[in-house]
Structures are given as structure tokens and as C-alpha cells.
Design a protein around this nucleic acid. Structure first.
Length: 150
DNA sequence: GCCAACGTTGGC
DNA sequence: GCCAACGTTGGC
């Protein structure tokens, strides 16, 4: 079992939205590194930190679980869809998604600034400047030290 | 709203 | 294959 962190903008789709729908297809990711992780590595049952980005207090707000491993993101095939990509061929899909299932909200937001203060977390790509990847691997050690902050 | 960091595109 | 231009992300 592996651990991940996935970013979302609360104005677009936040942890409360995930709680409401319970399971959400994580489509629209158009970055090859993130695609590779979703397509090749994520497995059902993997645990996910749900992270709010681009907002007043960026940070980890909840826990989710991978409910379905990587499968083609068919929003790329739909010309009407926001994330349409004419270069993705249904016979050979360029983009993949996973299904993410709500587990629980954290008791409080563990903010990015707080994560940056933790000596054990300085190696996390998340806390490094200029990181823009929306899907990131988290080690087991990082997972437990973050949860210990809750 | 600003801007640094980074990925992608496309001309050459 | 290089690299400038451009678009996007995301913290602040």
C-alpha cells in the first residue's frame, strides 16, 4: 500500500465536495508525471492526503482513498469538455484518472507553513518552492509524522 | 494581483 | 536538439 497527496482548489472541488459525492473520478490531470503515477502506481486502497491549494490557507484538510486504479480519462475525448485534448486517441489514451473516495476530514487544517516547520518533512517535494505537481508520492514516515500533528 | 517556477510548444 | 516564448500553477 502506498501513500499519496493530491491537490485541489477548494473553490473548484474541496474536501466538502468530496464528502458529498463520496467517490469522485479524478479527471482533468494533464501532466505526464502525475499521469504516470495515476496510470502505473496507484492501487485500490492506497491512502491519500487531500490538499487545498490556491486558497487562503493552503494545507492538508482530509484523507481519501483510491477507489479505482488508473483508467483512461475520457474527458480528453469530449470536444465539449473543459479538458478536451484532441491528441488523446481513444485507442491509445494519453490521459488517465483514478477514482478517489472520501474517508474523513482532519480535525483541523495542517497548513503548508506548519508542514514547512517540521524538520522531518524538509525532503517532501510539497514544501519545496516552485513545486507544481498536483499528485505527489508520500512516504510512510511522512504520512505518520503528518498525522501526528493533527 | 504579482510573480517565480516550471512544463510545453514550436521554430530553427 | 536547442531554446525562446508562452501558459499555468500556486504561494504570498
Amino acid at each position: 500500500m502506498q501513500y499519496w497527496l493530491m491537490k485541489s482548489e477548494p473553490d473548484v472541488f474541496g474536501i466538502d465536495d468530496l464528502q458529498k459525492v463520496n467517490v469522485e473520478p479524478w479527471d482533468g490531470v494533464r501532466n505526464y508525471q502525475a499521469r504516470n503515477m495515476m496510470r502505473d502506481q496507484m492501487q485500490v486502497g492506497d491512502q491519500v492526503f487531500f490538499y487545498h491549494s490556491n486558497c487562503e490557507m493552503p494545507g492538508i484538510v482530509g484523507i481519501a482513498e483510491i477507489a479505482r486504479a488508473g483508467y483512461p480519462d475520457d474527458s480528453a475525448f469530449n470536444p465539449e469538455a473543459k479538458y478536451f485534448d484532441p491528441k488523446s486517441d481513444p485507442q491509445n489514451p494519453r490521459w488517465y484518472r483514478v477514482d478517489v473516495k472520501f474517508m474523513r476530514k482532519l480535525k483541523r487544517t495542517i497548513s503548508l507553513s506548519e508542514l514547512r516547520e517540521q524538520p522531518s518533512l524538509t525532503d517532501m517535494p510539497l514544501v519545496r518552492k516552485g513545486n507544481r505537481l498536483s499528485v505527489l508520492p508520500v512516504t510512510g514516515q511522512e504520512w505518520s509524522s503528518i498525522l501526528a500533528l493533527e
